[in-house]
Design a protein around this nucleic acid. Structure first.
Lengths: 198, 198
DNA sequence: CGGTGTCGATACCAACCGGTATCGAGTGAA
DNA sequence: TTCACTCGATACCGGTTGGTATCGACACCG
């Protein structure tokens, strides 16, 4: 009785299992506090499988964060692409951004930990810098496009406004993590409104 | 020949030596990547001295960060207390804040790492929340005092403005860490100006 | 001066880390 | 059916970790 001839999982499947498991454990424990054994155990595999699919711990961490940053970037740009009518939609955009801070809270934590890592590792730093520059560029384009659409003269250069929005996203995530009540739901939108009205 | 009868260092002296050493090593390597041996070696002592003065690694980390947060808080409030003439001084305040981001870059890194720790440890979290609330309150008071002095109607509630300033401080520190050129020197001041003029 | 208690150096521990070598089971092509 | 090869489990390595037990040297007080 050979049964349905259970196939051996493909390499891509195993790799994905490991990545998903690592993502989950990172979210739960943080990057620095997570060992290869933790990841392998979460995936129902062993260290051997990890080393067979990745060059080592650093390679795995890098791969995961790169993937997450790309996903997050796409999401952020689509949010900004919908910023069609400027005056009232800034409130909506602010609300959506703050909502993203809550729903993606664990990701914000991971990004900031990764940032701390990048500050001490030149290789990681250059990778993060490249991604971040691309994100800034995308946000800048979305902002200037929305401004042109409405014929508004922004009091700040679009690329500077983009930096401020990104900074506020991270900064408010920190404050909200410390004390959610300190960051009311409308705050991000209110600030945005002040920043786009000349 | 007894010499100048070299005194044994007082307990407070040893404790301070350890704290200062740990601060230096934390700044260099980060909290998570620093072992008790590293700290003891930096202080010219051994682990025994550390365990004799602190309950353990966690106790030491907590003590140091508490102390740093207090120092930073005092510095931040004095900066805001000097915010006498609102219109032009916002630029100065912004410049000083951004300068603080650079000169205290390592501290920002440490705070964000500590924040990540607090997000996973309820005890650490409550300690940080308390300190942070006090800092918010102090900044709020400074802002409303300056506003009253000039008879300006702030478009944002002082406590909300305080949160935004704190968030921008951390957020811009992150962006500046990734790419210093992305955060021009006048940006913080420009944003501040938009936030205080109704 | 002499006893008493404190402080910190030393040695040591079990646990765990990232990484490597090995080897058997399963796979796909010949 | 066979055979070369891939993949992942297992065992193992040297090194490091936070934490503990011990003990000698020193300061302080009576």
């Amino acid at each position: 009785m050979t049964g349905p001839q259970r196939r051996r999982p493909s390499r891509a499947e195993t790799r994905r299992r490991i990545i998903d498991a690592a993502t989950a454990v990172f979210a739960r424990q943080g990057i620095a506090a997570t060992s290869l054994n933790d990841i392998a155990a979460e995936a129902g595999l062993t260290k051997g499988a990890v080393y067979s699919n990745f060059a080592g711990r650093d390679d795995l961490v890098l791969t995961i964060m790169e993937e997450h940053i790309v996903v997050r970037m796409e999401r952020a740009t689509t949010v900004f692409a919908e910023l069609a009518d400027l005056d009232e939609a800034t409130a909506e955009a602010g609300a959506r951004l703050l909502e993203g801070i809550d729903s993606d809270a664990t990701w914000h934590r991971l990004l900031l930990e990764y940032w701390g890592l990048a500050m001490r590792n030149p290789t990681v730093h250059s990778g993060l810098a490249e991604r971040r520059a691309r994100l800034r560029k995308a946000v800048t384009a979305a902002i200037s496009k929305a401004a042109a659409l409405h014929g508004v003269d922004l009091p700040l250069a679009p690329e500077h406004l983009a930096v401020v929005v990104l900074a506020l996203s991270n900064g408010l995530a920190v404050e909200r993590g410390v004390d959610p009540a300190a960051v009311p739901p409308t705050l991000f939108g209110d600030v945005l409104k002040l920043l786009v009205t000349p």
